[in-house]
Design a protein around this nucleic acid. Structure first.
Lengths: 110, 110
DNA sequence: TTATTTTATCGTAATATTGCAATATATAAA
DNA sequence: TTTATATATTGCAATATTACGATAAAATAA
């Protein structure tokens, strides 16, 4: 035991959980916030911004990329990372759906 | 090492990460979807809906509750769980902020 | 009172995540 | 070519998560 029973849930549930999981670490939230703050998506200085060692940052970037939340291109000796709007669209539509449901129903019995 | 360096990040970053992390499991996504689907927030049959054992479901419910995404009241021999709108508001405002940022800037260089 | 029912907690095994030193890879500059 | 610079990968230790059987707790029903 111990492994998530992914095959027992729908693809939609697993996809959403993967996106949320990728955002479930303060370092990765910080990376996204930094990408939103800087004007360009060239961010060769991302390692210097975070309180973590270079391999650790590289790993977090990889996870965000795998989840479809950021995109990266080789740019000479540096890597150009930027927001992947597609991934964020998926999460946003989930929360928009929740907002609509909440406005229709009354969940104030608790 | 292996423990998350939470103290190196801001409270806002940690709070957001905690909320996202709580949604980072398909079973917890399934629980939220179920709560949105049923008309009432009385959900004594939540264990029967999920492909997991009762203690595991109880644990997932506890995590959602700790994260502030659901609320629970003792209701006789059953527990009444329902959506906690406050938690979802926090996440939604984060994604709304991202959407605004994305519409202002061009992240299409990658 | 003694069942019965429902949810929570404990204990533990299996697996996953986090973090970093060491090292590899790749491009640019000298 | 050699050197410098930047990012990726490997390997491993520390910690966290996931899942469930066993058991406890709490309220209702008989």
């Amino acid at each position: 035991m111990g492994a998530t029973k992914s095959d027992q849930f729908t693809k939609g549930q697993n996809d959403l959980a993967s996106l949320a999981k990728a955002l479930g670490h303060p370092a990765r939230i910080a990376i996204i916030e930094y990408l939103l703050k800087v004007d360009s998506c060239i961010c060769g200085d991302i390692v210097g911004v975070l309180p973590l060692a270079q391999p650790t940052v590289s790993q977090h970037l990889k996870e965000l990329k795998n989840a479809g939340l950021i995109k990266g291109n080789i740019e000479g000796t540096a890597i150009c990372y930027c927001i992947d709007e597609e991934g964020f669209e998926k999460i946003k539509s989930f929360f928009d759906h929740i907002t609509v449901s909440l406005s229709k129903k009354k969940f104030d019995c608790c």
